[in-house]
Every structure is written in structure tokens, then in C-alpha cells.
Design a protein around this nucleic acid. Structure first.
Lengths: 163, 163
DNA sequence: CTAAAACCTCAACATATATTCAGGTCAAGT
DNA sequence: ACTTGACCTGAATATATGTTGAGGTTTTAG
């Protein structure tokens, strides 16, 4: 079995099959395919058209899953990852640049949620909640976004890759 | 125009048309329809089959939008709203019960995000990020959710940091 | 009364993030 | 060589949260 062999070290040298990557990252094969289609990771193919990944992909997938936990959508993750060097392995500094962008993002979201929490009791309890009066209903307080559009992404990460 | 009239006070007495509700809540008519289909709000109909809402709906929609901002999905919001009395207007206590549930939720999520933030720099910067070693990759640390996807490897070797 | 604005339903589309399935190919152990 | 498990592609399905449009009805302002 490929998996068994690969966990202790792929025979093929330094490359990993999609199943190897799945086993080592805990990410489903279908998701790995998906990430590749989305341009988040890359592979080469064998003669028989099977994917082969180099080890760097394990790290990239690690980053992807962590970033998702912060609520960052895949297209932004792709963009961030695309800032990494192609010709050489990313340095510690490269990774730090990524993480600092995301930390700012996280901080902003933590602040928003904290403010929301602090006003929840007051505003729901007291009965203001009107669009014009209540701080909870005035999105300008939190975000520079409107109140009538589609907001798919606000929930960010309530539920992750389960099922 | 109906909107003009309704903002200053509907002629029909105490009931609101869907357009009135949209104008007062800042929520699109299509979303109001949607919420009604989902059982989050309710209306009666005129002879001509048009929706009429009583003013309580404004509050409910306020609650819905606020809860969404905390990351709560509609089905949970529906469930929470269904705990409100049908026969009488909700009391301050009723609302407080709702908000306290959600505050706990929010607190949990704030804590998760905070922990995530605090580890971002360290873990992304340092190169651990392995599924078995890194606190960022070990979901049990954060959530008691998600069982099926991620199986931890018992294959001792750590090989992700390289390249 | 008439025309415009608001409303109705139902279906399809849109987005993000994948999973599942069908039908077929590749690779490896015995 | 044969069988079996891993792999391939592409399409369909799934969930959550709505929006858009077509085709038709109701209400209201003048």
C-alpha cells in the first residue's frame, strides 16, 4: 500500500502522491484536488498522469488551514501565497510577512467581536436596536460596509471543513 | 409612494408592508421574503395576498442582523427566536436570555481567535506547523468540533520543516 | 378610470468550499 | 499476469445566504 510506505518515507525519493499528502496533512484528497484547481498549491505529473508534490506543499497546506481558521477566504490566501518565492524555499522572513498581514486582520476581527459582545446585553436588553439609534445596528461603527448587500463572509469560520 | 408614507407612519394602522419593513430595517425585500420562508419572521396576508407585518418584526430583524454579525447561522437564530413567546411581546428578560446565549458563543470565538493570533507569528515563523506538533494545527486545542476529517498521524517523524 | 409602483410566486443564478459519484487508468504485491 | 487499491477527470450534489428575473396581480395616486 502506498500510504504505509509513504508515511515512513516515499520510495520515489522526495516526492509525495496525493494520498501521501492527504495522510500527512489531514486534508481530504478531494480538497487537495480542489486547492490545486484553485491555484493554491501545485504539482507535477508522472508519466501516468498522477500528481506528485514536493514536500513544500505540506507547509503550504498547513498555512492554508491556519489562515482559514482566522476567517480568511481562499482567494486571499491564494494571493498571499503567491507572494512567496517560486525559485527558492520560503525563508522565515517570507512566512513572517504573511503572518503579520493576517494578524492585523485577526486583530480587527477580534476587536469587532469584542465590541459586539460588550453591546449585546445592553442593546438587546434595552430595546433600542433601531437602525438609526442603536450602535449594534449601525455598521459604520464596525465596518465601512453598507447594510443592504450580500454579506456572505462575515461569519468567517463558524464552521470549518467538517463533514 | 408607499415608502414615504410608511416611514412617517403607515396609513393602514399598525401593520407594515414588506416595503415598509425593508425601508425601516435596511434589509432587502428579497431577504425579508427569505427570512419568512425560513421561519424567522411571520406575516399575515391581505385579501390581495400581500404580506402585512406587525411592528414586532422590526425588532426581530434587528436581532437577526446582530446575531449574524456574531457569526451565528440562521438556523440557530431561528431556534433561538422560537423560544420567544408567541402570544405576547417579548419582555426584556426574554431578550436577555437570547443575548446571553449568544454572548457565550461570542466569548468562545473571541478566545479562539485570540489564541490563534498569539500563535500565528510564532508558529508560522518558526516552521513547526506540523499536524502532530504545532498547536495551530491541532484543532482539539481550540474546538471540540470536527471529528471526521483530520486524523493525526502516529508516524513520529517530523519532516515538514525542511526544504 | 388608468397607469405606475409595489407586490406576488417560483425558478434559476451566485458565491465559497468542498464532497461524492461514475466511468476509466495506473501501479504494486503475489 | 492478475487483482486490488490508489489515482484520474468531470459533473453533480451539498450548504448557507441570499439576489435576480419572468410573468402576473394589487394597490394607490392623480
Amino acid at each position: 500500500m502506498t500510504a504505509e510506505k509513504s508515511v515512513s518515507g516515499p520510495a520515489n525519493g522526495a516526492v509525495l502522491s496525493v494520498g501521501d499528502v492527504a495522510a500527512r496533512t489531514g486534508v481530504a484528497v478531494s480538497a487537495i484536488h480542489f486547492y490545486e484547481r484553485q491555484g493554491l498549491i501545485h504539482s507535477i505529473r508522472t508519466q501516468g498522469n498522477q500528481r506528485r508534490f514536493n514536500r513544500g506543499v505540506l507547509r503550504r497546506i498547513g498555512i492554508i488551514k491556519v489562515a482559514q481558521r482566522t476567517g480568511i477566504p481562499l482567494n486571499e490566501i491564494r494571493e498571499a501565497l503567491s507572494s512567496l518565492p517560486i525559485d527558492r524555499p520560503p525563508s522565515a522572513r517570507d512566512w513572517r510577512n504573511l503572518s503579520s498581514r493576517w494578524r492585523d486582520d485577526l486583530n480587527t476581527r477580534i476587536e469587532q467581536l469584542t465590541r459586539l459582545r460588550d453591546q449585546l446585553g445592553t442593546c438587546i436588553g434595552c430595546g433600542c436596536l433601531s437602525l438609526s439609534d442603536c450602535p449594534l445596528r449601525n455598521p459604520d461603527d464596525y465596518l465601512a460596509r453598507d447594510g443592504a448587500g450580500a454579506r456572505l463572509l462575515e461569519s468567517g469560520g463558524h464552521d470549518e471543513g467538517a463533514t
